[in-house]
Amino acid sequence: MAIVEQYLAPEEAAFRTGLAFPQMVRVEGTNQPVTGLAFDGAGTTSEYAFWKFSPFKYGSGNLSVDVIWYAASGTSGTVDWAAGVACITPNTDTEDVQSAGFGSSPLATGTHLGTTARRLHKTTITITDTDSMAAGDECWLRLARNPSTDSITADVIVTSVRLSYSDT
Rank of each mutant, 00 (worst) to 15 (best):
V161P: 06
V158G: 00
I88P: 01
M24K: 15
F50R: 02
R16S: 13
E95W: 09
E95K: 10
T30D: 14
L19I: 06
T116M: 11
A42D: 12
E95G: 09
R162V: 13
E47L: 02
V158H: 02
S132N: 15
E12G: 08
M24N: 12
Q98I: 10
D129Q: 07
T35Y: 07
G43C: 05
W81Q: 03
L141C: 06
A82P: 01
G84L: 00
P90G: 05
L8I: 07
P22C: 04
L120Y: 11
C139K: 03
T111N: 06
L163W: 03
A83Y: 07
E47G: 04
P106F: 06
G41E: 06
G74H: 05
N146S: 14
G110W: 00
F39L: 02
R118L: 08
G41H: 00
V156Q: 07
G18Y: 04
Q6E: 13
I125P: 03
V161F: 00
S60E: 09
I157C: 01
P90I: 04
R142K: 15
A83S: 11
Y7N: 14
S99E: 11
M1Q: 14
G77E: 04
P33Q: 09
K122Q: 15
S104I: 14
G101C: 08
T124N: 09
W69F: 07
S166Y: 09
D167P: 07
E11H: 08
F21A: 12
I127N: 04
G29R: 06
T149S: 13
S151G: 06
V85Y: 02
A13F: 00
T78P: 00
